[in-house]
Computed example of a mutant assay.
Amino acid sequence: MTLNILFAARPERWSCYEAPLRKALESAGLDATLGMDLPPAEVDYIIYAPDSPLQDFSSYTRAKAVLSLWAGVEKITHNETLKIPLTRMVDPGLTTGMVEWVTGHVLRYHLDLDTDILRSDSRWEPRTPPLAHERNVTVFGLGALGTAVAQSLATLGFNVAGWSRSPKTLSGITCHSGHEGLKSALAHSEIGVLLLPDTSETANIVNATTLSLMPKGAYIINPGRGTLIDDTALLAALDEGQIAHATLDVFRREPLPSGHPYWAHPKVTVTPHIAAATRTSTAAENIIQNIVRGETGKSFLHLVNRDLGY
């Protein structure tokens, strides 16, 4: 039987994904019609981006799953017309990119590289940076990305802790969870990395209270979600010296407006949502792998828990 696979995303994504998806279908031996304009009642699978014009799934009566191209699915989890399984993107290329980006900025802060890179005077000021095992780093969020980042940093010798909503156990990582665990995790955060999902429970988790629980002069790295941070509270903590510097890759509104205080703040580094890009080749392989699983009676990988939002 020929499968009908709808690509429901913006046209510019189709131009990037069409060839990798067709290649992955051929490699998997699947006979499929793949396109952006298929009769809803005949669609078997929907490859999806949450910013797609498609928001009403009620007419897709034959579809077996919606397979998201994004790791973040908070824009679709509460869509009441979506009654079939929803999966999120867990891409090896994305994970590797996130690990490399976070590691680079952790090392930047750990070694105080900005002092020399941004130096504009002629002062000769030798210093001895601490060793990795003398630096406390906390990763907030221990999903696929957070776990990979935490384990990579631990391999480099950093004293790594992690925090998650529910208890986790990871070799070489001190894991905290829940409300009381959050306090311990914050106290450990000389460098704090935010990789939590966007949910009602994580919104503004970095606020005046939690910032005050971090060591004075701590650093914040946020490649997770813009909603995790109370921007006003962070700016105040930076001005007061409670937080030494923040590197921010994600924001409540993107692109970040030109007049936003983050752009001009001397203690903020803005990067344009580049921490972890999905690689079309590996993402396509993962999507088609899930379709194969669906066609062979196996459970889908990376299923989204609608109640939790991720």
Rank of each mutant, 00 (worst) to 15 (best):
H265A: 08
H265G: 07
P130F: 15
L153G: 01
G181R: 07
L25R: 12
V292F: 15
G178R: 06
V149T: 08
L308W: 15
G178E: 10
T103L: 14
N79I: 10
T147K: 13
R119T: 15
E42S: 13
T138P: 02
P261V: 04
I221R: 07
L131C: 10
Q289M: 15
D51A: 10
D91I: 07
H78F: 14
A275Y: 03
N79D: 12
I229V: 11
W124R: 09
E240Y: 02
I191L: 05
A237F: 02
Y109K: 07
P39V: 14
A187E: 04
H133R: 09
A132Y: 05
L111P: 07
D198Y: 03
D307G: 11
T61W: 13
S164R: 03
P129L: 14
V304G: 08
L196Y: 02
T147L: 04
V137L: 09
M98D: 12
R279E: 11
L195V: 01
T138E: 04
S15A: 12
D116K: 10
V268H: 11
P39F: 07
Y310M: 09
H302M: 06
E240V: 01
A237V: 06
E80W: 11
R165A: 07
T169M: 04
A32E: 13
E295V: 02
L195M: 06
L82E: 01
G294E: 13
T115A: 15
A283F: 04
T278A: 11
W124Y: 14
P40V: 06
C175H: 06
P197E: 06
L67G: 08
D307W: 10
I291D: 04
R88N: 02
E26D: 13
A65F: 11
A144I: 13
E125K: 15
A185G: 03
Y262S: 14
A24I: 00
L6S: 08
E254R: 02
T33V: 15
P53M: 05
V268A: 07
L170F: 01
